[in-house]
Amino acid sequence: MSEDSFLSLNALTLAYGKSVAVDNLNLSIKKGELIAFLGPSGCGKSTTMRAIAGLMRPMSGTITLDGTDITRVAANRRQVGLVFQSYALFPHLSVFENVAFGLRLKRLEAGKLKQQVEEGLATVGLTEFVDRKPAELSGGQQQRVALARSLVMNPKLLLLDEPLSNLDARLRLEMRTELQRVQRETGLTMIFVTHDQGEAMSLADQIVVMNGGLIEQIGTPEDIYNRPTTRFVADFVGFENIFAVKNGQLATEQGLATLGDPIEGHPSGLAWRPGMVKMGEGQFEGEIIGSSFAGGTREYLLRSELGPINAEVDATQTIYQPGQRVNFDLPVARAAILQQVD
C-alpha cells in the first residue's frame, strides 16, 4: 500500500457461498488513474467490481478508498458509481428521470437538479432524448444514459463493467474516446472491465490482468504488451513460444537446451513472439509443417528439437515450403522474462 494510493484492496477474498471467486487480491490505484481489469470469462472481474461497489461482502480482507476503510460501509454511502454491463436503467422512468434519480435522493433543489442533469446528458451527447423511455433508445444510447446517471453523482470512483462490449465497432470507438475525454476532463478515477486486449491497451493507464481469481500482472499497457511476467500474460498478449528455464537452460520436451547467449539473472521462463524468432540462420533446426499468409507477414509452424515453434517472417523474405528444413534461433536479448511459468 503506497502513500499516494487512492483505492486499495488488501488481501481481498471474495466467495459465493463456499466457492472462492477471488483469492487474496492486493491492488493499489492512484487518484485519477484509468485502470482496466483484463481477463478471460469467469476470472472474477465482475465479482471484484461488485465488492468495491459494496454489493458483495468480502469473506476477508479490506477495501480502502480515499483514506477511509470502506469494507463495512453500505453500498449507498460509498460514493462509488457502477455502470452495469446490462445498463440497468429504470424502465419506468424517462431518460431525464433516470439521470435525476440519484440527485433527487440528495434532495437537490429543482433548478440545480435540472441544470446538473442537462450537463450530465450533454457530457454523453444525449440532450435531445430527455423525454424518451429507455426502451425507446438504442443499446449505445442506453449505455450513455447509464454513464450519465453515474457521472452526475460525482462519485469518488467510477466502475464500468464491460462498458463497450454491447456496442458495434463504430460506437465502441466513439464511446472509447468519450470515456477518455470524460476522464481527462473530470480527473475521475475509473476502473473498467474488458475481455478485449486492444481496448485495455488503448484506454488504460494501468492494466490488471486477472486469471482464475488471481492477479497475474499489473502494469502499464507497454509493460503488459512487451514485458509479460507470467506464462498466462505472455500467452494472452501473443508470446506463442514459451519455455521454462532450468539451470540457465531452456526446458524442452526433449530435455534441456542451451541457447547461444547466456541467460542473465534467474528467470523462471522465457517467451518469444513469433516475429522474434530469427529464421534462416541459427543453432537450431526445424522442419516447416505448416504455413499461412497473414497479409504483410507469413506465419510458419516448425517442428524442432525444442518442440513446436511459431515463427513469423516478413512476406517479402524467402518463402519456405512445407517439409523444408530451416535453421532458426531464439535471441535471448529479445525474449520476455517470465517470473512464473506454471
Partner: peptide, 19 residues
C-alpha cells in the same frame, strides 16, 4: 420479467434497499 440489477443500481445511486 424485471431484472434485479435495477435495484442494485438504485442502491448505488444512494437509495436504501427498501427504498
Amino acid at each position: 420479467n424485471l431484472r434485479s440489477d435495477i435495484e442494485e443500481a438504485a442502491v448505488l445511486l444512494g437509495s436504501s434497499r427498501v427504498g
